[in-house]
Design a protein around this nucleic acid. Structure first.
Lengths: 299, 299
DNA sequence: ATATGGATTTGTCTAGGACAAAAATAACAA
DNA sequence: TTGTTATTTTTGTCCTAGACAAATCCATAT
């Protein structure tokens, strides 16, 4: 009944925290952490302790801290710093805390559905979904919330929002295709954006899989959509996002609008017909400006 | 409008085909393939051609061919061999071919929903879903079906089956938790199994995310389920599957049944309370034997 | 036919070096 | 003061070439 003595390889560790194998090795070389045991072959062998400490490191990194700063701190100091950073942007909603930490899966789904019904979709997203995602992030990083519960909740949330998306099945113009590139695991942000676009009068087609860049032009042509929306979470290397977008712009029909969202696309070089959408609040405006001028939804 | 001259790094290539970076390098060293260009730094730079040829290689590998055999063939010979292997197990259903290759996404969803309604869930799975998955695999490997279309269809299918799963919301005993481990990207097999179990009278809780091994015991206790089902596709290294299951068995409450499914779990050492389910057809029997003896669904 | 034991194949790991892109810092101008 | 540009440091990813256990194949013996 105890996994704390389970040894894992560098590859498994890499997969579980989302940090490359090479990076883990070079961190060890440069900063002396994480410093694993070795098996008789000389292969690195990590423990659950390393995993937990690296989750803190990862989270600090997402908050903008650089490795040199992170590793000059002791594990305890790192934890303290993380708590501080979290406190600067803690969401208020108390009822959500109850939902996140206390409820059973069945209760969660009922509660969410009820809130959606009561608030209406737009308000539900604003008042419940967005704070909920923040809270999940917080709970996850400070260790109060298990990864299992995090996944449980985001899974239920995904189901709920997806149902919303497919409900409006009448083919409206314009249509936008929503997808992620290989390596991008966070699909909730994309889903949220798709729902918002749909609310604003665009027909959102969500492809909930990671699609190679080279497949996009063909699919766009086949589906005859007006735009493609890509989501790049904070885990996605921003330089690669940049490169991907440039590459896509070159290979795609110039008439197609590209929409890029997520934390990884803050500063991007301007490109023809590229909309950068770093905030979900902007979406209604964006749609009005770029999509609704020459196209009407006739239903 | 042309991506064939797009250069990609070894990491990107690795992600797109699901073969490790180290493996790609050692294949080049040993067999001389794939042999990429180099940029001025000496870094490997692959093209779309490499990608396509490697997809054939990967597919041959899944068919049980070993690298030494695969790489002793020319690209053309490889393609021919793949076609031969595919022809040995081609599904019959002509109406499905039409669905897979011809229809628009909207048509697909309508068609699938209709078939499900007409056949009933059990028959729908048997007559439509399973052959459909086979056909998708075939089309994908022989290059007639784009990856985009493959994803499109499996996405729609997922939505349909998931709706089915959450429809029966009344809490029935026994409950089984369905999930995948980190690194396992193929979630359709798991979903299919969950649906079958649900049909057989088990309450299936599907967690559509990759959950670290160490999180499972806690979640199982929290949800108070009777069993955990894991799916290991042909992409998952079978030795790791073996290790994972052993590790899980040790850390989990001995009263909990573990169910392992997928192509990667053919020969497994016997373990207490471990059910190996290599064929979806067995599921009703399995449920009757191991779950239904002392538990009734009272609704 | 079935088990056993050795030979071969295969994927993943190792070390330590290299370098471009990104970020921080310094230098300078308005 | 603020803003721009050049210089330095940091950081992630790639490189080579070698090692080895686990998996698989193959030949021999029961």
């Amino acid at each position: 009944m105890d996994l704390s003595r389970t040894k894992i390889t560098i590859k498994q560790l890499s997969q579980e925290i989302g940090i490359g194998v090479d990076t883990l090795r070079v961190w060890e070389r440069r900063y002396g952490f994480p410093l694993p045991h070795r098996d008789r072959r000389g292969h690195r062998s990590y423990t659950t302790k390393h995993l937990e400490e690296l989750r803190v490191v990862k989270k600090l990194q997402i908050f903008g801290q650089r490795p040199s700063a992170i590793f000059s701190l002791s594990p305890t100091e790192r934890h303290v710093l993380l708590e501080e950073l979290l406190n600067t942007q803690r969401p208020e909603n108390k009822s959500l805390e109850h939902l996140v930490f206390g409820m059973s899966p069945q209760q969660i789904v009922v509660e969410l559905a009820e809130q959606k019904k009561r608030l209406g979709l737009a308000e539900f997203v604003k008042q419940t979904v967005v704070p909920l995602l923040q809270l999940i992030d917080h709970g996850w990083s400070s260790g109060r919330l298990s990864i299992a519960r995090e996944h449980l909740i985001s899974d239920q949330l995904t189901a709920l929002l997806k149902a919303e998306l497919s409900a409006a099945a009448c083919p409206v113009r314009p249509q936008v295709l929503f997808l992620t590139l290989p390596g991008e695991r966070h699909k909730l942000g994309l889903l949220l954006a798709a729902v918002q676009f749909q609310q604003a009068g665009v027909q959102s087609l969500l492809l909930n899989e990671e699609l190679p860049l080279s497949e996009i032009p063909g699919l766009v042509a086949e589906l005859a959509v007006e735009g493609v929306a890509l989501s790049f979470s904070s885990h996605y290397p921003s330089r690669q996002a940049k490169h991907d977008l440039r590459s896509l712009r070159k290979s795609l029909n110039p008439a197609i609008t590209i929409i890029a969202g997520g934390q990884a696309v803050q500063q991007l070089p301007t490109m023809p017909k590229l909309l950068v959408c770093s905030d979900l609040q902007q979406i209604p405006k964006l749609v009005k400006r770029y999509f609704k001028k020459n196209a009407m939804g006739i239903c």
